[in-house]
Amino acid sequence: MSHEMNTVLGLYNYWIVIFLMMTGFYVVIAKGNLVKKIIGLNLFQISVFLLYLSMGKINGGTTPIYPDKSFFADLQDQSSTMPVYSHPLPSVLILTAIVVGIATTALALALIVRIHEAYGTIEEDEILLQDQEA
């Protein structure tokens, strides 16, 4: 297989993840509706989670959870091989990051509710207009 082909096969899912990330990022910075911005932020973050998890995966690997005792009994009997485990650390980091993400989302949505009560709108340009008129 050619070098380019290898590169494409080896990296294409990172590129798709980047595409997803950038779609989310675009929604955050281009859209004027506050809820829409938070939706964009969510897309952006979920895609970053996927980036992290992609790097932990090993081809033919399995979940880093050990099988129970009977497996090891079989292992000795049938001399089968130990499974290869995908890397557990990205999972750990992303579990933390998901929690941070939902915390941010909750706070942002609470702010949006209050902004709607104070301004009667959740459109960025209308809020700006009200602030300038005052």
Binding site: F44, A108, L111, A118
Partner: peptide
């Protein structure tokens, strides 16, 4: 203050 906090939140999270 609410809009300022929101703007900070969005930029800070980015």
């Amino acid at each position: 203050a609410l809009t300022a906090a929101f703007q900070y939140l969005v930029m800070g999270t980015i």
